[in-house]
């Protein structure tokens, strides 16, 4: 039971960290940030591996392996596609934010 409360505590604190950590995101980075966050939840791979590692029936193992493939797609694909987005981003605007971006942020 105390284990449950400990996990609940971690959950509540993580909610506040999550709110706080992206509170100042600039609007040009909305899509890469979404993509990066998307990659992070691909860490469900850890859960899929644990479940697949304890599977002792063929049917369960097959479903668990599907979960492993899906989670890895999410994790690896997510980080790679985010990197590609940011690569494009860096090439396009090496300097400080353009006037267009600044205007957009003022409007927001």
């Amino acid at each position: 039971m105390t284990e449950g409360v400990a996990l609940l505590t971690v959950f509540v604190l993580a909610v506040f960290v999550g709110f706080e950590v992206v509170s100042k995101v600039s609007s040009t980075l909305h899509t890469p940030l979404m993509s990066g966050a998307n990659a992070i939840h691909g860490v469900i791979l850890v859960g899929a591996v644990i479940v697949a590692g304890t599977a002792d029936e063929a049917g369960v193992l097959v479903v668990a392996l599907i979960a492993v493939v899906l989670a890895t797609l999410n994790l690896v694909g997510g980080f790679v596609v985010t990197d590609r987005m940011l690569e494009m981003f860096g090439a396009k605007r090496p300097g400080p934010p353009s006037a267009e971006v600044a205007a957009k942020e003022d409007g927001a």
Binding site: G18, V22, M34, A37, H41
Partner: peptide, 11 residues
């Protein structure tokens, strides 16, 4: 998961 859930909501 919680980090993504919370930051995703703000985003």
């Amino acid at each position: 998961g919680t980090l993504v859930g919370a930051s995703g909501t703000i985003l």
